[in-house]
Design a binder for these strands. Structure first.
Length: 451
RNA sequence: GGGUCGGUAGAUCAACUUGGUUAGAUCGUCUCCCUGUCACGGAGAAGGUUGCGGGUUCGAGUCCCGUCCGACCCGCCA
């Protein structure tokens, strides 16, 4: 009989003869007897090697075993003595008495301590293939996977259809300069900075759509919240009244995700400094100019003519709404029309400003969204106002020529959401394999490779 | 792209302020001891061209210049 998982249920059958396979998570050599903590996808269990109970070959093999070796162990599950139970482990009441030990893979000595909290970010990133094995990082990326699942579950339940947006796109993009060129293709192509055009086109097909996918930004930034490749959680839907429909949807979407995390990864959340975010019935929202007036009134800093908030002001506002409104989230609406992309819908009452919004979570921007132009002629005019040539966007414009309902949507940064949720300072720590200016899997020019 | 701080064993740091003999500590690694540990414990050992290049000096980890690398801040954004 073979146990295929170290889940509590599977290893708790005292007396059962089982075979388990896993990595050596810890090794405690007491001289004659040796304890090995074995880890697999579902958990860990203590195993104990007593020479008199093992085959002679297994006794010899056990002496060689080190951390991260992969073993196949055959033995009997036994209840531990009263003084030997470990209340800190879910499998702490039992252990496996080893009879046979087979080595499936050896491992070199580790270059660092996997559970050491003080490893520098640069070293952590250089050794990701092994540092990701630590309990904390396994938990982090399990949580991230459940955020994505929560996103999908909620939107599917609301009648959204998941789409796969292309990542190789035509050169004429939303913004302009900040894209990676794809030189291989004859017609000039770039990597997509977002699925924006394609999710809008697909509103004309499915009415409600969402996409989970990589977004590429060719920007020379070096901050704790930027990446050259990140995961966009995007959605777009038709038949809306205005941007408030999008904001309300995001509020309920976030509520679902938080509840989902409580249900699925509560023990993983405890490994990080997770404080459940305060999410009121209605997330407070302010117009950009209102926030700037507020900042002027409260702090004396006059930025009432700036087109956006500075990162320091975003942090200030995050604290402010936390205290005054008991919310870790705040929407800022009505960014200047001049600063927003050409598809952004202006407020009819004040066309200098848009029916767009950003969502700040604990002082960091995690979402941009809003209502979009759905009228073909207005959209073409907006392109011209921005100095863009509608000819370059013919393909995109087809969907607006042939019947596009009032629509809007948003994009949510998965890594930023994860980082803020868990109290992680640098977004790269919340990214499985972060890409930035100087690093793709390793430093691009490590000192030892020079010359 | 602009700015700030930093780079010393495999990891995390000390020595730098005020230049001075053999650059220390903890964890890890290796060897030995240990039958109830769970961050096991005990004894011992190995491990460094102080990122790299140049300069000042009788003497540089320490001071100066250059260079590479990293972290952070700004612009921009999710």
């Amino acid at each position: 009989m073979s146990v295929r998982t170290l889940s509590v249920e599977a290893v708790s059958k005292v007396g059962a003869e089982v075979t388990i396979k896993g990595w050596v998570n810890a090794r405690r050599n007491m001289g004659k007897i040796v304890f090995l903590d074995i880890r697999d996808r579902a958990g860990t269990i203590q195993t104990v090697g007593v020479p008199s109970q093992m085959t002679p070959e297994s006794v010899e093999r056990l002496k060689e075993v080190r951390l991260e070796w992969v073993l196949e162990l055959k033995g009997a599950v036994q209840e531990r003595g009263a003084k030997q139970k470990n209340p800190n482990s879910p499998t702490g009441a039992v252990e496996l008495l080893i009879k046979e030990l087979k080595v499936l893979a050896k491992a070199e000595p580790l270059p660092l301590d996997l559970e050491d909290e003080k490893i520098g970010l640069g070293i952590h990133l250089d050794y990701l293939p092994i540092t990701l094995r630590s309990e904390k990082y396994r938990a982090l990326f399990k949580i991230q996977a459940e955020i994505v699942r929560g996103f999908r579950d909620y939107l599917n339940a609301q009648g959204f259809t998941e789409i796969q947006a292309p990542k190789i796109v035509a050169a004429a993009a939303e913004g302009g300069a900040d894209v990676f060129e794809v030189k291989y293709l004859k017609n000039k192509a770039t990597l997509a900075q977002s699925p924006q055009f394609y999710k809008q086109i697909m509103v004309g097909v499915f009415e409600r759509v969402f996409a989970v996918g990589n977004c590429f930004r060719a920007e020379q930034h070096a901050t704790t919240r930027h990446l050259n490749e990140f995961t966009g959680l995007d959605l777009e839907f038709g038949m809306i009244e205005d941007h408030h429909d999008v904001m309300n949807l995001e509020t309920e979407l976030l509520r679902h995700i938080l509840n989902h995390l409580d249900k699925t990864v509560s023990s993983e959340l405890k490994l990080w400094s997770y404080i459940r975010p305060e999410l009121p019935e209605k997330i407070p929202y302010f117009k950009l100019r209102e926030v700037q007036e507020l900042i002027k009134k409260e702090t004396g800093v006059d930025h009432t003519n700036e087109p956006d908030l500075e990162p320091g002001e975003e942090k200030w506002l995050g604290n402010y709404v936390q205290e005054k409104h008991h919310s870790d989230f705040v929407f800022i609406t009505h960014y200047p029309t001049a600063k927003r992309p050409m598809y952004t819908y202006p407020d009819e009452a004040d066309p200098e400003f848009t029916k767009s919004f950003d969502l700040l979570f604990r002082g960091v921007e995690i979402t941009s969204g809003g209502q979009r132009f759905n009228d073909y002629n207005q959209l073409v005019q907006s392109m011209k106002n921005k100095g863009l040539n509608p000819e370059d966007f013919k393909f995109y414009l087809e969907s607006f020529q042939y019947g596009m309902p009032p629509e809007g949507g948003l994009g949510l940064g998965l890594e930023r959401l994860t980082a803020r949720l868990l109290g992680v300072d640098n977004v790269k720590e919340a990214t499985l394999f972060p890409r930035d200016l100087n690093r793709i899997d390793l430093q691009l020019s490590p000192p030892e490779y020079k010359q």
